[in-house]
Design a protein around this nucleic acid. Structure first.
Lengths: 217, 217
DNA sequence: ATATTTTTTTAGACTAGCCTAAACTTTTAT
DNA sequence: ATAAAAGTTTAGGCTAGTCTAAAAAAATAT
């Protein structure tokens, strides 16, 4: 059984490694966990001893098959709870993250199954992110950061990477919600900001924001 | 902010003291918390320092007004979640306790309010236990001696135990008649006398009298 | 090729919550 | 009234997770 903290580390490593595909450095983990490198090293040893990650000194960590499975279960729970909060309790999609961070650690496979059923076995959460199924399979739709699209492209917003509440509020304001069609009108050479059209409205968004909007083309 | 463990101790003390009305012994707490007396003593010191309980060595603990409020919030959450599990997720009433023990510690007043609303502001949980409202008021089932109520409780006088004529005359004088609403304003630690409000009048009654007034809430 | 900087690890210490063993109070039994 | 028993607290130690400071390794710059 993993502790609350171990689950959070594993989830962080999963995300940083883009689903386990690359090695993750100690300092990267320290930054997202808002802790110090020394603490990370300790936890790395623990998770490594339990075979959730493989670890080579001064090199970094790679998540194992087992660790991947655990991380996906936490992510599954997180996204199911977010869906519940928005669909059933009428939360706004930009105010569910913190609560879901707590709910994702509740231990009860039965609860998660019942919740999944109650929500009608949703495939994505309110931010458009795919919900891993009970066996840890994730349906990854082809997602491209809006920032790489050139003027003229039309796409559909599938997901938003960052769950920062300020970003989500901003996207909400400009109507950049999952499911919306988005057209790139112009790209400014200097700062790579984009002029786009969403729902008939023209709006200019910065590079940082465009990197966080994932679209399907 | 209370830790997960502190919340559990406080809840245990609340229950053992029947809602704060009697002092609780170290070993009683140790038993329900499935821990050792020495650990309980440590925690008692902590909760006492934070003013959630009052504590006298070798005697026992009494929950304070503040501690009572915290305990009631945890109980409120527990019972709301149990209601959710049974009403919405089709759990059986006998399989919800363990999960609710986890869910009761989720910190989000907004979540609890929304959940309460979603469930239609239920007054009792699936076991028939009353759900404290957002201000910590509990509907205690019929015929409770006034003496066990803590400051904040509001009840309706249902009956008087003793039929001693002097008592009845006294009650008549202070307006403590069946059917009257009565609010507990304060409880004196020393002699357990109660300051109450009846029909807009504040009056102080002794422990003996309060034990003879039965209220419904 | 070597010196400097950056990153990571180790060493040692802290808090929360738990433990056992011993000391101390209170209660109960003679 | 005093001895024994029961209950409680103190003392000291353990683990999980955190920290700072110093040492060690790797990366970078000259």
């Amino acid at each position: 059984m993993l502790s609350y903290t171990e689950e959070n580390y594993l989830k962080a490593i999963y995300h940083l490694s883009s689903g386990g595909s690359r090695a993750v450095l100690t300092n990267e983990i320290a930054e997202v966990m808002k802790t110090k490198a020394a603490s990370v090293t300790d936890m790395i040893k623990k998770l490594s001893a339990k075979n959730f990650i493989s670890y080579e000194r001064y090199y970094g960590v790679k998540i194992t098959r087992q660790g991947n499975g655990e991380a996906l279960m936490v992510i599954r729970k997180h996204r199911l709870w977010e869906t519940f909060l928005v669909q059933k309790l009428n939360f706004h999609w930009d105010e569910v993250h913190e609560v879901a961070e707590q709910l994702e650690h509740i231990q009860s496979p039965r609860l998660i199954h019942k919740l999944d059923e109650y929500l009608g076995f949703p495939k994505t959460d309110p931010h458009g992110e795919p919900i891993p199924d009970k066996d840890g399979k994730v349906n990854i739709p082809a997602q491209t950061p809006l920032s790489v699209l050139l003027p003229g492209y039309i796409g559909v917003i599938l997901a938003v990477k960052d769950s920062d509440s300020n970003l989500l509020k901003y996207l909400n304001k400009i109507g950049a919600l999952p499911g919306q069609r988005i057209t790139v009108i112009n790209k400014e050479e200097y700062d790579e900001s984009l002029e786009v059209e969403i729902g008939g409205e023209k709006v200019t968004i910065s590079k940082v924001v465009s990197q966080n909007i994932l679209v399907g083309v």
